[in-house]
Simulated scan of single mutants.
Amino acid sequence: MPFEKAFTVIQHERGGIMPDHNAMIRTAIGRLLSEKTGVAVISMRESITELLALTGAAHTIETLQDMLLEMAEVRGMTVVLDV
Rank of each mutant, 00 (worst) to 15 (best):
Glu4Ala: 14
Val74Gly: 00
Met18Ala: 12
Gln65Met: 12
Arg75Tyr: 03
Ile10Ser: 11
Val83Tyr: 14
Asp82Arg: 08
Arg45His: 07
Ala40Gly: 09
Gln11Trp: 11
Asn22Arg: 15
Arg75Trp: 03
Ser34Asp: 10
Ala40Ser: 12
Ile29Phe: 00
Asp82His: 11
Gly15Gln: 07
Ala57Leu: 09
Val79Glu: 02
Met1Arg: 09
Ile29Leu: 06
Met71Trp: 01
Ser34Trp: 08
Ala6Val: 04
Leu33Cys: 03
His21Gln: 15
Gln11Met: 09
Leu33Thr: 01
Val74Ala: 13
His59Tyr: 13
His59Arg: 08
Glu62Met: 13
Ala40Lys: 15
Phe7Gly: 01
Met1Phe: 13
Met24Leu: 13
Glu4Phe: 10
Met77Lys: 10
Gly38Cys: 02
Glu35Ser: 05
His21Tyr: 14
Met77Asn: 05
Ile61His: 04
Ile61Phe: 01
Lys5Trp: 06
Leu33His: 00
Gly76Ser: 10
Leu69His: 14
Gly38Leu: 03
His12Lys: 12
Ser43Trp: 02
Ile48Lys: 03
Glu4His: 13
Ile48Pro: 01
Ile10His: 08
Ala40Cys: 05
Ala57Thr: 12
Ile48Trp: 01
Met77Ile: 09
Ile48Cys: 02
Thr60Pro: 04
Lys36Arg: 10
Thr60Ile: 07
Ser43Thr: 01
Leu81Ser: 10
Met71Cys: 05
Leu51Lys: 01
Met67Pro: 02
Gly38Lys: 06
Thr37Tyr: 08
Leu69Glu: 13
Pro2Cys: 10
Val79Pro: 00
Met67Lys: 14
Ser43His: 03
Ala58Cys: 05
Val79Phe: 04
Pro19Lys: 14
Ile29Arg: 02
Leu81Met: 14
Leu33Ala: 05
Glu35Phe: 09
Ala53Thr: 10
Ala53Gly: 14
Ala58Tyr: 06
Leu32Tyr: 03
Ile10Met: 15
Gln65Gly: 10
Glu62Phe: 10
Glu13His: 09
Val9Ala: 15
Leu54Tyr: 07
Leu51Ile: 07
Leu54Asn: 06
Met44Tyr: 02
Ile61Asn: 05
Ala58Gly: 15
Asn22Thr: 11
Thr55Met: 11
Glu50Tyr: 05
Asp82Leu: 09
Asp20Thr: 09
Thr8Ile: 07
Gln11His: 14
Met1Trp: 08
Thr49Ala: 10
Ile29Pro: 01
Met67Asp: 04
Met1Ile: 12
Leu51Thr: 00
Thr78Cys: 05
Arg75Gln: 13
Glu73Met: 14
Lys5Val: 12
Arg45Asn: 07
Thr27Pro: 00
Leu68Met: 14
Thr49Pro: 00
Glu70Val: 08
Asn22Ile: 04
Thr37Phe: 08
Gly76Tyr: 04
Leu81Gly: 00
Thr37Lys: 13
Ala40Asp: 07
Gly56Cys: 11
Ser47Pro: 01
Val74Tyr: 11
Leu54His: 09
Leu52Asp: 03
Gly38Tyr: 05
Thr78Val: 12
Ala6Met: 08
